[in-house]
Deep mutational scan, measured.
Amino acid sequence: KSAVKALFDYKAQREDELTFTKSAIIQNVEKQDGGWWRGDYGGKKQLWFPSNYVEEMI
Rank of each mutant, 00 (worst) to 15 (best):
residue 25 I to G: 04
residue 13 Q to C: 15
residue 55 E to I: 12
residue 26 I to L: 06
residue 8 F to S: 09
residue 11 K to P: 08
residue 56 E to F: 07
residue 15 E to S: 12
residue 9 D to K: 01
residue 7 L to D: 06
residue 18 L to M: 06
residue 4 V to S: 05
residue 6 A to C: 09
residue 27 Q to C: 15
residue 13 Q to D: 09
residue 56 E to V: 12
residue 10 Y to H: 06
residue 22 K to T: 10
residue 24 A to L: 02
residue 5 K to R: 14
residue 1 K to D: 11
residue 53 Y to E: 02
residue 14 R to E: 10
residue 44 K to C: 11
residue 44 K to G: 12
residue 20 F to P: 03
residue 55 E to A: 10
residue 31 K to P: 06
residue 35 G to F: 10
residue 53 Y to M: 12
residue 38 R to P: 03
residue 47 L to S: 12
residue 12 A to R: 02
residue 50 P to Y: 01
residue 23 S to F: 14
residue 1 K to Q: 13
residue 58 I to T: 15
residue 46 Q to D: 07
residue 33 D to I: 08
residue 43 G to I: 07
residue 21 T to M: 13
residue 15 E to P: 13
residue 43 G to A: 09
residue 26 I to G: 00
residue 46 Q to S: 09
residue 9 D to W: 03
residue 33 D to W: 08
residue 18 L to H: 06
residue 9 D to H: 03
residue 16 D to G: 10
residue 16 D to W: 10
residue 42 G to Y: 05
residue 7 L to A: 07
residue 53 Y to C: 15
residue 16 D to K: 04
residue 50 P to N: 05
residue 29 V to E: 01
residue 39 G to I: 02
residue 42 G to P: 02
residue 32 Q to I: 15
residue 27 Q to K: 13
residue 6 A to S: 04
residue 22 K to H: 07
residue 41 Y to M: 05
residue 18 L to I: 04
residue 21 T to H: 12
residue 11 K to F: 15
residue 1 K to A: 12
residue 16 D to R: 03
residue 7 L to W: 05
residue 22 K to N: 07
residue 55 E to P: 01
residue 46 Q to G: 14
residue 45 K to V: 15
residue 13 Q to W: 06
residue 28 N to R: 07
residue 43 G to L: 07
residue 12 A to F: 01
residue 41 Y to L: 10
residue 25 I to K: 05
residue 44 K to F: 12
residue 39 G to M: 00
residue 33 D to M: 10
residue 23 S to W: 11
residue 44 K to D: 11
residue 31 K to S: 05
residue 26 I to T: 01
residue 14 R to N: 14
residue 3 A to I: 15
residue 23 S to Y: 13
residue 16 D to C: 15
residue 37 W to R: 00
residue 43 G to R: 07
residue 57 M to D: 10
residue 51 S to L: 06
residue 13 Q to Y: 06
residue 52 N to I: 11
residue 31 K to E: 05
residue 55 E to G: 07
residue 19 T to V: 04
residue 9 D to I: 00
residue 23 S to Q: 10
residue 45 K to L: 14
residue 29 V to A: 03
residue 5 K to N: 04
residue 25 I to E: 06
residue 50 P to S: 00
residue 42 G to N: 13
residue 57 M to T: 11
residue 46 Q to W: 04
residue 42 G to M: 10
residue 35 G to N: 09
residue 5 K to D: 04
residue 52 N to C: 14
residue 7 L to Q: 08
residue 7 L to I: 14
residue 38 R to Q: 09
residue 5 K to Q: 09
residue 54 V to L: 03
residue 22 K to P: 05
residue 3 A to L: 14
residue 49 F to W: 02
residue 23 S to M: 10
residue 13 Q to A: 11
residue 17 E to T: 02
residue 32 Q to T: 13
residue 1 K to F: 10
residue 9 D to C: 10
residue 36 W to A: 04
residue 19 T to S: 14
residue 34 G to W: 03
residue 40 D to P: 00
residue 24 A to S: 13
residue 15 E to A: 11
residue 55 E to Q: 10
residue 53 Y to K: 07
residue 6 A to L: 03
residue 9 D to S: 07
residue 10 Y to I: 01
residue 22 K to F: 05
residue 40 D to V: 00
residue 33 D to G: 10
residue 50 P to V: 00
residue 55 E to W: 06
residue 8 F to R: 15
residue 11 K to D: 15
residue 46 Q to H: 09
residue 57 M to I: 15
residue 6 A to M: 02
residue 23 S to L: 10
residue 5 K to M: 09
residue 55 E to H: 08
residue 53 Y to D: 02
residue 11 K to V: 15
residue 54 V to Q: 02
residue 31 K to F: 10
residue 7 L to E: 07
residue 51 S to F: 06
residue 52 N to Q: 11
residue 55 E to M: 11
residue 28 N to E: 07
residue 34 G to R: 05
residue 37 W to L: 04
residue 38 R to C: 06
residue 48 W to M: 08
residue 13 Q to M: 12
residue 15 E to W: 12
residue 26 I to P: 01
residue 31 K to H: 05
residue 23 S to V: 04
residue 38 R to T: 08
residue 35 G to S: 08
residue 52 N to M: 12
residue 32 Q to K: 13
residue 1 K to C: 15
residue 58 I to S: 14
residue 28 N to W: 02
residue 49 F to P: 03
residue 33 D to R: 08
residue 58 I to V: 14
residue 12 A to D: 04
residue 56 E to T: 09
residue 30 E to G: 09
residue 50 P to E: 03
residue 32 Q to N: 12
residue 14 R to G: 12
residue 41 Y to I: 07
residue 54 V to C: 05
residue 20 F to D: 02
residue 51 S to V: 09
residue 57 M to G: 09
residue 12 A to W: 02
residue 47 L to E: 05
residue 17 E to D: 03
residue 37 W to C: 05
residue 11 K to E: 15
residue 29 V to T: 03
residue 39 G to N: 00
residue 16 D to M: 07
residue 3 A to T: 15
residue 25 I to S: 03
residue 14 R to H: 13
residue 25 I to Q: 04
residue 25 I to A: 04
residue 35 G to A: 09
residue 8 F to Y: 14
residue 39 G to Q: 00
residue 13 Q to V: 12
residue 4 V to I: 04
residue 49 F to T: 01
residue 42 G to H: 08
residue 33 D to T: 12
residue 46 Q to K: 08
residue 32 Q to C: 15
residue 46 Q to P: 03
residue 32 Q to M: 15
residue 29 V to K: 02
residue 48 W to V: 05
residue 57 M to N: 08
residue 31 K to Y: 08
residue 24 A to H: 05
residue 54 V to G: 04
residue 30 E to K: 13
residue 29 V to M: 01
residue 6 A to E: 04
residue 36 W to G: 02
residue 54 V to E: 02
residue 33 D to H: 11
residue 51 S to T: 09
residue 47 L to Q: 09
residue 46 Q to L: 05
residue 21 T to F: 10
residue 53 Y to I: 12
residue 44 K to A: 13
residue 19 T to Y: 04
residue 15 E to Y: 10
residue 25 I to D: 03
residue 7 L to S: 08
residue 52 N to T: 13
residue 28 N to G: 06
residue 29 V to N: 01
residue 56 E to L: 08
residue 38 R to S: 06
residue 26 I to R: 02
residue 41 Y to D: 01
residue 31 K to L: 06
residue 5 K to P: 00
residue 17 E to R: 00
residue 4 V to C: 15
residue 52 N to S: 15
residue 26 I to H: 01
residue 23 S to K: 09
residue 30 E to F: 11
residue 25 I to C: 10
residue 34 G to F: 05
residue 34 G to S: 08
residue 57 M to K: 05
residue 21 T to G: 11
residue 5 K to T: 09
residue 44 K to S: 12
residue 26 I to A: 01
residue 20 F to C: 05
residue 58 I to P: 14
residue 49 F to M: 01
residue 42 G to C: 13
residue 14 R to D: 10
residue 12 A to T: 05
residue 53 Y to L: 15
residue 11 K to Q: 15
residue 15 E to H: 11
residue 9 D to V: 00
residue 49 F to R: 00
residue 10 Y to Q: 04
residue 8 F to A: 12
residue 43 G to T: 10
residue 17 E to A: 00
residue 5 K to S: 05
residue 57 M to C: 15
residue 19 T to F: 04
residue 44 K to L: 12
residue 45 K to H: 13
residue 23 S to T: 10
residue 54 V to K: 01
residue 34 G to Q: 07
residue 6 A to V: 06
residue 33 D to F: 09
residue 1 K to I: 12
residue 28 N to L: 04
residue 15 E to Q: 10
residue 3 A to R: 14
residue 26 I to M: 03
residue 31 K to N: 02
residue 22 K to M: 10
residue 27 Q to N: 12
residue 46 Q to M: 08
residue 41 Y to P: 02
residue 52 N to E: 13
residue 6 A to R: 02
residue 6 A to D: 05
residue 7 L to C: 14
residue 58 I to Q: 14
residue 40 D to C: 03
residue 38 R to Y: 04
residue 52 N to K: 10
residue 25 I to H: 05
residue 37 W to H: 03
residue 27 Q to I: 15
residue 4 V to L: 06
residue 20 F to E: 01
residue 55 E to Y: 08
residue 45 K to N: 10
residue 2 S to T: 15
residue 11 K to Y: 14
residue 48 W to E: 04
residue 20 F to Y: 01
residue 48 W to L: 13
residue 17 E to V: 00
residue 4 V to A: 12
residue 19 T to R: 02
residue 22 K to L: 06
residue 9 D to L: 00
residue 38 R to L: 11
residue 4 V to T: 04
residue 30 E to M: 14
residue 44 K to R: 11
residue 17 E to C: 07
residue 3 A to D: 12
residue 43 G to M: 07
residue 14 R to A: 14
residue 16 D to T: 10
residue 40 D to G: 00
residue 46 Q to C: 09
residue 35 G to H: 08
residue 47 L to C: 15
residue 46 Q to V: 02
residue 3 A to E: 12
residue 3 A to Y: 13
residue 7 L to F: 05
residue 35 G to I: 08
residue 11 K to H: 14
residue 27 Q to R: 15
residue 39 G to K: 00
residue 56 E to Q: 08
residue 48 W to Q: 06
residue 4 V to N: 03
residue 6 A to Y: 00
residue 18 L to S: 01
residue 17 E to N: 01
residue 28 N to I: 04
residue 6 A to W: 00
residue 1 K to G: 13
residue 37 W to Y: 05
residue 11 K to A: 14
residue 2 S to K: 12
residue 27 Q to V: 15
residue 56 E to Y: 06
residue 52 N to F: 10
residue 4 V to E: 03
residue 9 D to A: 08
residue 33 D to K: 10
residue 41 Y to V: 04
residue 14 R to M: 10
residue 17 E to K: 00
residue 25 I to M: 08
residue 50 P to F: 01
residue 3 A to G: 08
residue 22 K to Q: 11
